[in-house]
Nucleic acid binder design. Structure first.
Lengths: 230, 230
DNA sequence: TCTTCTTTGCGTTATTATGACACAAAGTAA
DNA sequence: TTACTTTGTGTCATAATAACGCAAAGAAGA
């Protein structure tokens, strides 16, 4: 190993997470209330430093497990944020990621580092510490773009779901209203969901068609090109 | 400042650059032949470590200046590569970027760290050191996607250009052939180039229409949706 | 049980976007 | 002068899309 190699002085490396949760037709983001400086008592995204042996995916899972109590998520790398003054403690490069979870499946707990953990609707995000407002903004934009050509978002639904539920998810994430019949046609033409015969428990007398994600989909890409009525 | 902060042991941080050059209707990538281990005498992407006070953009410019002799580029962040064994010297996270340049405008020189610097056509890239083959592959894919909805690639042309020149660039980057008349219609409908009256010098008796990039374009996004004939 | 309202599945139609291709004018080369 | 190539500008048949109708089935209320 190059002897100079580990004496090379360079910035610290961290990750920050934008955790999206979809529940009762509302899209939220998970925020931590900081117990310590900087930004003590302020809201920030969950994050943490990368340890020597960890991959980015591992550090994201570690943060979710220790700070929030959940892990094993759909995870996507977003962007690296490098402004020199973004962290008052020193030079930190943050590789931001975002995840999607169904809040009903987890019990969120504040880890020992935080006063509180709370879901905030995406249109009611408070001022955030560091450059996390910008990170959140970019994550929202990426999610909106990605859902139009990639079957993201199924992590937020049950294994089987109705067409109405799927449409509500799209309308919520994209923040638009979509014509019910055109949405159905485009989603089915895209071929990434399948009709399933099984009725869902808990729905007594309703029999709307139930669908599930088509995991055998050849190409993992399509073009929804959704637009709203009028 | 947190006293623990700078004693935190974490991976080194580097950038790698995929430098695309377009010249004589051929798309190439700039590669370095390494003078030192690891991968001595092997081809790799240009890259370097991030210094404490540098932004990502600054380190990219420094690498281009010192290793290749050019700077001030169109630059886009691509992705962070974090495989634990990607660098045999130790743990290095690389934040890959890609750039577009017109090779005619620069004289490429091998910096003191490299045996040689050479352009390779994108379909004749040799085996690369580290994980640079994968980085190159992702950069190519990103460039192909991006050019369909964002006016990238104008860095590779002169300030004014003919429709045929612009189409050749698209055909080269996308590696498809496009119907001349449909391409013209879509590009003009997108509204991101303008007709300019000025004739270009050096073209004596030819007067094809000359266009230039519309810098006043409101939204910096469109949808080309180009497809090839037949 | 009867009536009313909502939800859901499955259509149709007018408009627009797209792919394929024709043609003439002007420059180029022989 | 005569091909040949390049460039600008169309047309047209087809496909994709947005907007919307309608009937069947459940839900809700009397």
């Amino acid at each position: 190993m190059n002897p100079e190699f580990h004496t090379y002085k360079n910035p610290s490396l961290a990750v920050d997470l934008v955790v999206f949760g979809y529940h009762r037709q509302s899209l939220s983001v998970l925020l931590l209330n900081r117990k310590d400086a900087p930004f003590k008592d302020g809201w920030t995204l969950p994050g943490g430093f990368l340890q020597m042996e960890e991959t980015l995916q591992q550090v994201c899972n570690r943060i979710m497990r220790t700070k929030i109590g959940i892990e094993n998520l759909y995870l996507e790398q977003l962007y690296s944020f490098d402004a020199p003054q973004r962290d008052p403690r020193g030079r930190v490069i943050s590789i931001a990621h975002y995840t999607l979870i169904n809040p009903e499946r987890f019990e969120i707990i504040a880890g020992k580092m935080a006063n509180d953990v709370q879901w905030f609707p995406v249109n009611q995000i408070p001022e955030l510490g560091f450059d996390h407002t910008e990170i959140f903004r970019q994550a929202s934009q990426r999610l909106k773009s990605k859902i139009l050509y990639h079957p993201v978002g199924f992590e937020l639904l049950d294994e089987t779901f109705t067409m109405t539920e799927l449409q509500a998810l799209y309308e919520c994430i994209l923040d638009i209203s979509i014509d019910r019949r055109n949405f159905r046609r485009k989603i089915l033409d895209a071929g990434f969901i399948l009709l399933t015969g099984s009725k869902r428990e808990g729905l007594k007398n309703r029999h709307p068609d139930l669908y599930k994600f088509n995991k055998d989909l050849k190409q993992n890409s399509f073009q929804l090109n959704i637009s709203s009525p009028q």
